[in-house]
Amino acid sequence: MKTLNDRYDYGLELFLLSIDEGITGYRDDSLETVKRNQQQYDMPLKILSYDKLYGWTMDAIVAQIGKKNNCTFCGVFRRQALDRGAAMLNVDHIVTGHNADDIAETVLMNIMRGDIARLGRCTLICTQGEDTIKRSKPFKYAYEKEIVMYAYFKKLDYFSTECIYSPDAYRGHARVFLKDLEAARPSAIIDIIHSGEAFEVKDEVKAMQKLQQTCKRCGYMSSNELCKACTLLEGLERGLATVVITDRGHNKTEAEESSRPIETMRTIPFFHIPSESNRQETDSSIPNVV
């Protein structure tokens, strides 16, 4: 992006945005890479941490809820953190490094889960809701293999490892399945994206889908009164309350605990979309900035 912007004079103002999930050993290394990238590409860098935004690192979340299902947190929190980081930078466009393999994987997952709303959206190169920051995936048709080869031959400094909490079993299965398909027939990846693009959702079904609204608590877009991040955060905070209370030896019942007033819980700061003026472009650094 940086190279293209310089070469063709796109006139973009680019930023690096990186999310620190707070996973010891995993993000530490990748944040080091991003910091080197900042120097190599001479671009301003913003790092937003889960800890700062949600008050919880992934390490703390895993310590509380165990190693199962924690990638739900990973995913929901990261998505919202990217938008919020971008809003803080006052940019109007997020560019992510998703490649063809990632998108084919998502198509498969959405089909298996029957998530029709996402199935329609996930193959778009560029998405924009009314009140969200534009997102695009310029590598949509580029195979992961090509990107990795390119990075290898250009000696690009990038980071790629499996998240140590990764057992997002679901995505993992889709990925392994996809890699097996690719080994048998390399065009499978592009074929799956094409199928995803060709899906038509009937109007009746569309009408049944929930309308987008904004989260009552934090202002982020949501299909329910509370957005997913707020719901997850509330769960964590309530869980924490349980621990504190039992530590002190009180004997409160579940019902009493859940009537605990929301005011004492940590919440996410209110989300403001950057105003039309002064908008700029950002390059999210997951994980390929070319």
């Binding site: 990638c71 995913g75 990795v148 490892t161 998240c163 990764s166």
Partner: peptide, 10 residues
Amino acid sequence: IVFISTLHGG
């Protein structure tokens, strides 16, 4: 001989 993993986390 070079071996590169392309399987990365989110």
